[in-house]
Design a protein around this nucleic acid. Structure first.
Lengths: 329, 329
DNA sequence: CCTTGTCATGTGATCGCGAACAAATACACT
DNA sequence: AGTGTATTTGTTCGCGATCACATGACAAGG
């Protein structure tokens, strides 16, 4: 910066003024400074600036399962929104979601000097970990349940699950089976609750829940078990990947879809429309969730306060060919 | 830091020594300092440290299509490796891969003070953009072609495509059709080359190529076109998502797989094993690619030089049920 | 003509840390 | 005891920016 000042024949302060768009700089001196900057290919040192302003221009993202479609999309949305808000994004992805790991990741980011943190933390333990995080920096959770103790943005899983289940009931299915996610996840819980409420509201029997781990493999295994029960005519699956495994298992068991069994998924991953058959599912706007979370965080940073600190986004049902009317026996 | 020094009754330099594990600190003073640090919950200011050491402990990742399985997995691998090497990771995801966007992203990261950059840049234009990037910081590309002008890590796409095609030829198919990726991608090019070479080596006819855009939708559309040609008995598809669309189209056209047509994909996404039927494909170890890229970058930072600056990882074929012997007519 | 206020620019201090050097202390060996 | 060397600690400076304040020039108003 001193070099630039020398070349432009001004003081370092004037260079700083030009850089920060401060008022009270005569147009021609501004030009001279800019010319000097170009000539020297000068780039401000962000560390120095961060040191004195106490602002790093950086936000942190703690993410879990970041290779999965949901988290990856959210991260993408977050980065996009952060950039347009003038922030950098630093990531810390977790291998496990225990309280210690979350705390560690948050600490790491804090040490790096991030101004705020978004936690992509869909697990119950993570939320409580986040809640415990004695963090001086603002923190927003995304994709976690509605009873999160920190500000958060999430899809209304319960409403989505309820709609999915009701869709099947409306097709005259006597009841709807459920393949849930792994225990400990907020999505697992809220989706199961939505399913249960829909059944209860309709006075339908509530069958036993099968549990998976979100993977197609686990859906396949659940499918094999379910296929043994010839009574089953409708299944609501807690995510699309498991639904894929389910379809595979039903196919192998010789059950036609939706002829014998109707299946609904959750997420609407891009491939869902090309499953065999195309999957009826509940769309989660992941990218938008990420963007909204970041907006919330930026608002907190700006000190807007906690005016709208819990944000539930309504998911949307996408009807495809994996669901059909129940066969009356 | 001054506070800590005061509480511990030492100078700030001694605190610094303890923090950096410098030698020549008496055990009991070290203890006093550590105690003071704990008492005050002191955290070093990374901006100040970066300012004086000229090292930000941060690496940048430029990524494209970061919601897709491949890039997301690589990013994940990169982050993991970076963390264990003691670096933070800052991401910049691109919406388009033109030279200007890439340059902008790289500049942004440089301005932030990253010490090195990994570019997840599978597009030809990106590679040339990267090559042009007049960057003072070390730069490594991952997942791009073998003729990249910067150090890079990639799967040997050509070998993978060749193996996939040969697998089909070995099953007695007269020739193998190809659904390629979008033009401009290195993967598209090298996979097509591998396919072509395998055909030529076997003296098989080289059919016209269908092009998609990696999405299941485009695979579906290509599949509809291919299904019209009753001569087709084998298709090598440049990625699994398109293969999924292909399977769907064939199913709708009443062609059985692998009875009428064999299909091979590329990537081995986790769902591929649950397609209908389970997909024979070529596995790319994305996470490992990311890790290796980061290791390469760290080596460059350490000044090990460009000893092994191009690293080709051999992909592995995964045989499943979407391929079978050609039906002799 | 002198005050007063606005613009335009410069000066010095400061952010928190580590590097270089200096000083003090401890230990070893005559 | 005296000298030399190794360990341990402290002092000063500077990294590259912003901030608070000072200064000079000029115009407007009395």
């Amino acid at each position: 910066m001193a070099d630039v000042a020398r070349v432009a024949g001004v003081s370092h302060q004037t260079v700083s003024r030009v850089l920060n768009g401060a008022p009270h700089v005569r147009p021609d001196t501004r030009e001279r400074v800019l010319a000097a900057i170009r000539e020297l290919d000068y780039r401000p040192n962000s560390a120095a600036r961060a040191l004195v302003t106490r602002r790093s221009q950086t936000l942190g993202v703690v993410s879990f399962g970041s290779a999965l479609y949901g988290p990856a999309s959210m991260l993408d949305g977050i980065e996009q929104a952060a950039r347009s808000a003038g922030y950098f994004v630093s990531v810390a992805s977790l291998r496990s979601l225990d309280s210690r790991s979350v705390q560690e990741a948050v600490d790491r980011l804090r040490d790096q000097g991030v101004e705020g943190i978004v936690v992509i933390a869909p697990q119950i333990s993570a939320v409580s970990a986040v809640a415990k995080v004695s963090s001086a920096v603002p923190l927003v959770a995304v994709g976690s349940g509605s009873r999160s103790p920190v500000p958060m943005v999430a899809v209304d899983n319960e409403a989505g699950a309820l709609a999915a289940t009701r869709h099947l009931l409306d097709l005259d299915h006597e009841t709807v089976h459920h393949v849930a996610g792994p225990s400990g996840w907020l999505e697992t819980k809220t989706r199961e609750e939505g399913w249960r409420k829909a059944l209860e509201a309709a006075g339908a029997r509530v069958p036993q829940v099968q549990s998976g781990d979100w993977s197609a493999r686990s859906g396949y295994e659940a499918g094999l078990r379910i296929a043994e029960d010839r009574e089953v005519t409708a299944v609501f699956c807690a995510n699309d990947h498991m639904a894929l495994g389910l379809l595979r298992a039903f196919h192998e068991a010789g059950r036609s879809i939706p002829g014998d069994i109707s299946v609904v998924g959750f997420d609407d991953i891009p491939e869902a429309a090309y499953f065999a058959p195309p999957l009826t599912t509940v769309r989660q706007p992941f990218g938008e969730l990420g963007r909204r979370a970041l907006e919330l965080l930026v608002e907190e940073l700006a000190g807007v306060g906690h005016a709208r600190s819990h944000m539930l986004v309504s998911p949307e049902m996408v009807l495809r060919r994996s669901t059909g009317p129940a066969v009356r026996r």
